[in-house]
């Protein structure tokens, strides 16, 4: 079995339109070398083709020369502003999904970015699992003419309908359980930090000492439901860090 197979299948179902070009291209425009590298490595693990730019000018060059499925833009760049790059992109009528990344977490920047046509806004620091989730949904939304079902093994999930089917039999989940499953499905085989899970599903409600137990007790219910309906996926605890679905 090729290691890519799972990812391959996932992407096939995510974007039926792109079957022939399953490996998507992502551009990272970020001036901090450390962050650029770690994001690049993480994305390459997911079989994305990743290119990087370290400032406004090199970002502008790459934007104009190639088409990307998704572009990550840091707002504050040497010799320019990321929002201007976004404007340039829209001017060139490029179809890429765009995620703004900023250390500022300022409401103004967020509103401005989204107004200029960014698909999402992510403030630093973020969890890699969160970044992957955002990239996937941004690409999915950007290609809205595709079939939006996410299929992994015998589990089919519809983010729009918020429904889950296992072997075509519907599995009833409550809102939080659905969010949990969605996060795992969109990050298959990835070790997800428990804080990332808690933040994704419950916001910043749970920054307290019993974070671990709390997330565990919520995941326990989901696991039980998945097992009862013979899902071919299972969520495993990686002690001390978080969880992994395979």
């Amino acid at each position: 079995m090729f290691p890519e197979t799972e990812v391959y299948f996932e992407l096939v179902f995510l974007h039926l339109k792109y079957i022939k070009q399953a490996r998507m291209k992502i551009l990272i425009i970020e001036d901090e070398a450390g962050l650029r590298e770690v994001v690049q490595q993480s994305l390459e693990k997911e079989k994305y083709i990743v290119e990087t730019a370290h400032d406004y000018i090199s970002g502008l060059d790459k934007l104009g020369a190639y088409d990307y499925d998704c572009i990550l833009i840091d707002i504050m760049l040497p010799n320019g502003n990321g929002l201007d790059l976004l404007q340039e992109l829209k001017r060139q009528k490029k179809q890429s999904a765009v995620i703004i990344i900023s250390a500022k977490d300022a409401v103004d920047d967020k509103v401005k970015g989204l107004d200029l046509g960014a698909d999402d806004y992510l403030s630093k620091p973020f969890h890699l699992s969160e970044l992957h989730a955002r990239i996937k949904s941004a690409i999915r939304r950007n290609n809205h003419n595709g079939d939006n079902l996410i299929v992994y093994k015998n589990v089919t999930l519809s983010p729009e309908q918020r429904t889950v089917a296992i072997d075509n039999k519907e599995l009833i989940l409550n809102r939080k359980e659905f969010d949990l499953l969605y996060y795992f499905i969109i990050n298959p085989n990835r070790l997800i930090n428990k804080t990332a899970i808690a933040e994704y599903v419950w916001g910043d409600h749970t920054d307290q000492a019993d974070n671990l137990d709390f997330v565990y007790s919520q995941i326990k219910n989901l696991r039980k439901k998945l097992k009862e309906s013979d899902a071919e996926i299972d969520i495993q605890a990686v002690y001390g860090i978080g969880y992994k679905m395979n």
Binding site: V38, Q41, L128
Partner: peptide, 26 residues
């Protein structure tokens, strides 16, 4: 924010890439 992002993400990547003994993962 940025150094924090780098540290957290590097650790996450490290945890994913390496199969360490349980205690070290802890």
């Amino acid at each position: 924010q940025t150094p924090l992002a780098i540290s957290i993400n590097k650790l996450e990547l490290f945890a994913e890439n390496n199969i360490l003994p349980d205690e070290q993962m802890m």
